[in-house]
Design a protein around this nucleic acid. Structure first.
Lengths: 284, 284
DNA sequence: GACCAGAGCTTAATCGATTTAGTGGAGGGC
DNA sequence: GCCCTCCACTAAATCGATTAAGCTCTGGTC
């Protein structure tokens, strides 16, 4: 089914059909004609062909998200949901690439409207920053994490870094933010790891936190008695541990929606700010 | 950079340039000319525009994988890797959709070479079955799981089903397979859940297994003493539990590669069969 | 010397949409 | 009656590739 079929069925030219279906306002077309075209399109089940449109318009109505090897859990899942919802509302679609590299090849084949590269974003060297404020928002969420420990009376706090090199950039950022929070509260500087005297550890993410709980269990230690542990960016797996992992939940859908609007060149709109909440379980 | 630029730079028509770059054998073009064209293309950094190609050829060189809400872990990750590698080797690219529905919209926009719909595959009602033998291969992997328990001397075995409705189809399939294995070994029928007398439980997947370990811990029971638990499709999280989760690892890259070849209409090729191994940890 | 085959190209059609630049006619003003 | 302005459309160009069809030589055969 092509536009030509719709035009033929409704007795107009493809130009007119296109104007009607795209709601072009610079053309004066009586409602009767509009209706005829719309009816024909609906009856024939017409769907514009993406590649033809993309060729004409220069780019397709796709947005590419490079997820590298990141697991699609926690905030990334909600980020994707938000992106997808907002893009869909404007006739676009989100597609995700998993795996190492080859982003350029994918972009050449799909020629997407935009590429959001989480790998570069997480390596802290993305000049584009099409993240809807996600990275910047981390400061507030890190505060949520650290201040929970402070509220619980901890003064000597450690920060557990990830082992994965690809996360080094963003991990350093989070550590800086954590230190800023501690300093603002007049506490001693946050150290990495868990040296003597530390009573609580804030982890880079839930994965790191679970690893810590795991090695603690091997040493015969238990959270929160021996050491309080709080995760970050609830993945759902922390819930299954015993003691269950206390963590910070970030609903990143708002960032996703803002990123979508930025990509489409729309004003920021009425996207509400992104809250983060502490999910209190057993470990801290 | 368009083909026209390359043609102009090498002093031939776009037709000739296209023939050279696509290695069309039905055309006799001397090596000297071929070389000129290739050089020009390389120097100008020419990359064919995906949408123009897609329009002309009817479909793009994309393959769409609908992952729904499935986590990209364990065998799905390796399936994706295999798919991607094999597709890339033939000039195609894999893109993944996450989230509910809207697959059709995505397909309309991208018009991909093929759509592999994991949601329908997992719901056990996909007539296309572009899975490279994945679903069929589950029988052997289920045998790996159940036979491990049998080798350990268990005779009364339970099977833990997932709570998620969307997995009901594939879960029933796995249960049937598990029962067939038990019956082949002359054991009593495998029951769902963990009724009286059951000494070991095979879980639908690692997630279900961890949930079980979790509730066992709450009841003060421990694996494997009180009940042996084996997972399925190693996600990496089971390693962090204490006792660590014994599970079955499936390297699904081979299925991915076969699926890719099927999609591209290539013969099955020398893709080796997919092995599954028991990762013995503490829980069974 | 006419004819043919093949090498080495090119011209132009094609895919399906969008969009610019008109065109023909109706109606209004003077 | 003439001119002008809108309305309601349409013809054709365009995006960038692929590819069928054909064209012009050169060299060889009979």
């Amino acid at each position: 089914m092509t536009l030509k079929d719709v035009a033929a069925a409704s007795g107009v030219s493809t130009a007119t059909a296109s104007f009607v279906l795209n709601k072009v306002t610079s053309q004066t077309i009586p409602e009767a004609t509009r209706e005829r075209v719309r009816r024909a399109a609906a009856e024939l089940g017409y769907v514009p062909q993406g590649s033809a449109r993309a060729l004409r318009e220069g780019r397709s109505r796709l947005v590419l998200l490079n997820a590298g090897r990141l697991p699609v859990t926690g905030s990334l899942r909600s980020f994707i949901d938000g992106l997808d919802t907002e893009l869909a509302a404007h006739g676009h679609t989100l597609l995700v690439r998993h795996g190492d590299g080859a982003v350029q090849q994918a972009a050449d084949i799909a020629d997407p409207r935009a590429v959001i590269d989480l790998v570069r974003l997480y390596a802290d060297d993305d000049p584009g920053r099409l993240d809807g404020g996600w990275i910047d928002g981390l400061a507030a969420h890190t505060a949520t994490q650290i201040e929970y420990l402070i509220d619980r009376g901890h003064t000597r706090i450690g920060f557990a870094m990830p082992a994965d090199d690809r996360l080094a950039g963003i991990a350093r950022l989070r550590l800086r933010q954590a230190r800023a929070v501690a300093s603002a509260h007049g506490l001693p500087e946050i150290t990495t790891g868990e040296p003597e005297g530390v009573t609580a550890v804030a982890a880079f993410d839930d994965d790191v936190a679970l690893r810590l709980l795991s090695t603690m269990a091997d040493r015969g230690q238990q959270a929160p008695t021996d050491l309080a542990v709080i995760g970050f960016d609830d993945t759902g797996y922390g819930e299954l541990w015993r003691p269950a992992l206390t963590t910070v939940r970030i609903d990143a859908a708002g960032y996703g929606r803002r990123a979508a609007r930025a990509v489409l060149g729309l004003p920021d709109g009425a996207v509400p700010p992104v809250p983060s909440t502490v999910v209190v379980r057993g470990s801290a």
